[in-house]
Design a protein around this nucleic acid. Structure first.
Lengths: 197, 197
DNA sequence: TGCAAAATAGTACGAACGTGCTATTGTAGC
DNA sequence: GCTACAATAGCACGTTCGTACTATTTTGCA
């Protein structure tokens, strides 16, 4: 099987397909992503789309990786331009809140595949573990900067940070709650304050 | 259209079908619930299952309601036998942690349908709003009992409680984390402690 | 500018989907 | 036990699915 991504146009089309697919995933979830629906969204034939990935599953993986890359660029990268410590940590959660408020396909994929073994689940686990580690590391740096108490458990704080983002995502999308970001901000503030030095 | 639930056997079969369906939903999600898969799980014909609900969507709604009823019986009802206040609140989150650790189809449905308008989404919103109100009410009672400070916002506390359960569910199922309940317990303790009187 | 290869389309297949219609089996009151 | 009806099965339909195979168009390099 030869995939279609050797010429410049091929690469461009590949990116365009993935972009359209992400749009579909945001509305319908990763599992409902079909070759046919992506082809329609990209105004291409089913075979044309298929040739770019080789299988539906590999297309889903490509979309998942693209989402992770997008998250990294929009949420983590800007925050890493802030100095280590609470300032960077606050930048992460601030960018992350915007991201979650707009809808996060990775969170959706997490729920869809958390009990369904396979390569997609494995990929989701991989990205979520990396994110959690990055969070715990950012907390650690805030401890080293003397801004958070030394006796806290970074993984526990990362755990609780994640929970706040999850409920923000939940309320924003299910309830259409306009005050969800404000509530999440209050929760973050309380969390940081109770661990402050 | 005449639904099949007039005789005693009909009612029994209806319940058995829903029970099997809940098993499938726990593994695959509500959206992937098909007449065919439920029929196979219940060792019945497609038409036999279909006759009990009239449509796939109504079957999904029946399953959703059954899950909500189950949650009410297992999580809320036992806690309501505890006295109002922190004791009842702790009973709720304790039962709820067990429930989430075992897997909650309602959380899965929330993600699956949060951006997909329709009667299923409406039903999910209904149940989640009721749960959130019950939580806020339980917090209010703890304030009235003098166990939590009077200046707290019960809805904010309910928001944060929900977040902790979401991340507990996430870590239990995606990571298979055995320490998720312990972490959630610590988070609850910190939350209650920071609002204690 | 021609030619090889890449990119895309066309078509076909078997399977599963929801749901209508009709036939058969089972139940419950007389 | 007969009868009316409930419960379940069987079958057929149009659609969509993933993917294999073949044909056609487009690209990039000599």
């Amino acid at each position: 099987m030869v995939l279609a991504a050797a010429t410049s146009k091929g690469v461009a089309t590949h990116g365009a397909i993935v972009e359209r697919a992400i749009g579909l995933v945001r509305k319908q979830g990763l599992e409902s992503l079909s070759i046919g629906s992506v082809a329609q969204a990209a105004t291409m034939s089913k075979s044309g789309v298929f040739a770019h990935f080789g299988s539906r599953e590999d297309m889903q993986l490509a979309v998942l990786d693209a989402v992770a890359e997008d998250f990294s660029q929009r949420v983590l990268a800007p925050a890493f331009r802030q100095p280590r410590g609470l300032k960077r940590l606050r930048a992460i959660v601030s960018n992350w809140m915007e991201w979650a408020h707009d809808g996060c396909p990775m969170i959706a994929a997490t729920i869809e595949y958390d009990d369904r073994p396979g390569v997609i689940r494995d990929r989701v686990v991989y990205w979520q573990r990396r994110l959690r580690e990055a969070l715990a590391r950012a907390v650690e740096l805030a401890v080293e900067a003397g801004e958070l108490r030394a006796d806290i458990d970074p993984e526990q704080v990362a755990f609780e940070l994640f929970g706040i983002v999850l409920v923000l995502h939940h309320d924003s999308h299910l309830f259409g709650a306009t005050d969800a970001i404000a509530r999440a901000t209050r929760a973050f503030d309380r969390l940081f304050a109770s661990h402050a030095n």
